[in-house]
Nucleic acid binder design. Structure first.
Lengths: 156, 156
DNA sequence: AAAATACAGGACTAAAATGGTCCTGATTAG
DNA sequence: CTAATCAGGACCATTTTAGTCCTGTATTTT
């Protein structure tokens, strides 16, 4: 399924923490670490990544710290994963695309990719605000590849 | 997103290959390897895993080989992933659940888990037959996290 | 200015997951 | 009995991931 690295998990926790403050207040690495029960070094790493991804803003120097770059409602799960999980490398075709006779093989890869795209679309509609609020239920995915086997052979 | 290990990719390719034969014929490791352009050892590993997961049936001895345990229409993407990807280990709460005061932290984990469940549900509706056929389009996921049915509030 | 506070960026190490191979044993057909 | 074949692990190399640390830069305070 959606396999997340631990860093993504931490990142979400950190973001969720920052999301609790809607007053633009700044929070230092140390403060976030304490609040989330994570180690400062790890939190620092996560905060830096999130900053580069423009999900949070950072301010240097005394009285500096971090805060969300936008309201939690405008930060999506897809963005969080992109930032922390990095680009997803696809298993590319080993042979030259020109001479690839393995329709079955490459077709399969394409199918999974389309599933990924579908999942991604779904994740774009989930916001940090929802992730941070444990009460939010989750509707099932309509991952319908399409049903044009009108022949109805899927069942006997 | 849906990060698959290479083994899952191979597994799907192998399954897709077997799915092309609906006559119950058996296929040896070597034959599958040749057909898919994968190395025999790797194919062997994959086939063994798929056998243990009951997605394919195996027959030992001379004239032995493998074949799908069921029609491709009855094998789901979720099953394939379960078999090859193994159980998804969740980042478990470090502290005793009893004394966990970090609602934000644990709530986040729960949210991701629910997303996973939603994705899984979607994958259960995609069949090997669809994966094997590159023509099948993929509908977008309705990953609606909030959307509290009944128009009521989520218990404020 | 000087000092203290914080973030930026990257180097680095250890541990774990993956990928892939190989060996030994068990089963079946002929 | 002998050829095929699968079963089940052991095993090693490579890559990822986690997590730490060091050096530098920006900002505020005194």
């Amino acid at each position: 399924m959606l396999r997340m690295s631990r860093l993504t998990d931490y990142g979400t926790v950190v973001l969720a923490h920052l999301a609790r403050f809607r007053d633009g207040s700044l929070h230092t690495t140390a403060a976030v670490a304490t609040a989330t029960h994570l180690t400062p070094t790890t939190v620092s790493k996560v905060l830096k990544i999130l900053t580069k991804a423009n999900l949070i803003d950072s301010f240097r120097g005394s009285q500096g710290g971090y805060r969300l770059a936008r309201p939690a409602e405008e930060i999506t799960a897809a963005e969080i994963i992109d930032a922390l999980e990095g680009p997803v490398s696809i298993t590319e075709c080993s042979v030259d695309a020109q001479q690839c006779d393995l329709v079955t093989v490459c077709g399969v890869g394409a199918a999974w990719q389309r599933i990924n795209v579908a999942i991604r679309d779904g994740l774009e509609h989930i916001t940090l605000a929802q992730l941070a609020d444990p009460r939010h239920p989750i509707a099932p995915f309509d991952l319908d590849l399409e049903h044009n086997h009108t022949g109805g052979l899927t069942r006997s």
